[in-house]
């Protein structure tokens, strides 16, 4: 694995965000993934989302584990802090980092092997703890880095490149997240940037654990006829839920309330607007979201969109009553109790 830097030249006509930065300022090193890899599209969507949200790059921290997906944190936001941990342990690394500095914007990128096999327990508990983190699961049903073994998200009947069919039932990360009480659950497709970017933006502004499962085909090992995670299969079985718009807090909201729009207000005042295509769908009803995904799954359809959102839930810091100042910013003199405090503490043992 090597890292190839992109040329730093930026064309002066490129649009700039509120910080005066162009999208190129949010890019990272050259990808070493295969040409056409879904993950590179997710990377591009993340670049777009961070750029549009005007996140100062040095205030973001990118966390990942091991696998093709986990390599991608090197390919966006080179000016951000990155930590590429060990296999399946990104959620707990992110938990600790979050506890130490609550003011950074955390994004964790993982894959179906990293999240649903070796790191399944960690994923579940990060949801349970409601760690402030955008958790992107780049889901391709296969172990790409080790050349094509089935992963835990491979569907029954989906075949490997050599034609062997998977017989073990999959773990569906979206159903898992919904049943564990995740407060932000989305599913998208690396080939649908128009849908993915607003979901990522809303997820970044969510207070708590924001889970986004992205079907992200592996062109080398799982993009053939017979695979249920190929570009073609995904497009043919795509069932897009109400498209969402993300309206950041700084934009004045002028549009009149549209009957065809459901609006969820984020804790920071931003809005997520769901353009209704199905009058019965309520993105704040967990059971309905679960039933909807299951119903379409039964007929072989992949439901995508922002499936569930709960903006009233308590996050890691609320649950643990942590200090509002990031621990890392507390002055050392305040932090260290010193000898006087120790003497007082010792009184309890006399």
């Amino acid at each position: 694995m090597t890292s190839i830097l992109k040329p730093p030249v930026i064309h002066p006509s490129l649009p700039k965000n509120a910080l005066g930065l162009t999208r190129r300022d949010y890019e990272g090193a050259m990808s070493t993934l295969c040409a056409g890899c879904g993950h590179d599209s997710v990377t591009a969507a993340l670049v777009q989302a961070f750029w549009e949200l005007d996140v100062p790059p040095h205030r973001a921290a990118k966390m990942s584990g091991i696998g093709c997906s986990s390599k991608t944190t090197a390919y966006f936001m080179r000016q951000s802090h990155g930590f590429n941990g060990v296999h399946g342990r990104m959620p707990s690394l992110a938990t600790g980092a979050n506890a130490a500095n609550r003011d950074l914007v955390y994004v964790g990128v993982s894959g179906d092997g990293d999240s649903l096999s070796i790191g399944l327990g960690q994923l579940c508990h990060a949801i349970r703890r409601s760690v402030n983190l955008l958790y992107v699961l780049e889901n391709n049903g296969v172990y790409g880095l080790t050349k094509g073994q089935f992963s835990a998200s491979a569907d029954v009947g989906s075949t490997s490149k050599k034609g062997e069919a998977n017989e073990q039932p999959p773990i569906d990360p979206v159903l898992l997240a919904l049943s564990l009480g995740a407060t932000f659950v989305g599913r998208s497709f690396s080939g649908d940037k128009a849908q993915l970017v607003p979901i990522l933006k809303a997820a970044l502004r969510h207070r708590g654990f924001a889970f986004v499962d992205v079907i992200s085909p592996c062109v080398s090992f799982n993009d053939h006829v017979g695979s249920t995670k190929s570009y073609r299969y995904t497009r043919e079985h795509y069932e897009s839920l109400a498209p969402v718009d993300f309206v950041p807090v700084r934009q004045e909201i002028t549009a009149a309330q549209d009957a065809a729009v459901t609006t969820v207000r984020m804790h920071d005042g931003s809005l997520v607007r769901f353009r209704k295509t199905d009058d019965t769908y309520d993105p704040t009803d967990r059971d309905a979201a679960y039933a909807h995904v299951r119903k379409h799954q039964e007929v072989g359809e992949i439901v995508t969109g922002l499936l569930y959102i709960d903006e009233d839930a308590r996050d890691l810091h609320a649950l643990n009553h942590t200090a509002t100042t990031p621990l890392v910013d507390l002055p050392y003199a305040d932090l260290c109790p010193g000898n006087t405090a120790l003497q007082a503490l010792q009184d309890e043992y006399r």
Partner: peptide, 28 residues
């Protein structure tokens, strides 16, 4: 004393969260 403690889901998460905290700048 301005700190936080986590009873993690397992031994691995326990030490990994401590590593994450140290990485983010505090003694852990």
């Amino acid at each position: 004393y301005g700190g936080a403690a986590l009873q993690a889901e397992d031994e691995i998460a326990g030490v990994a969260s401590a590593l994450g905290a140290s990485l983010a700048g505090v003694k852990a």
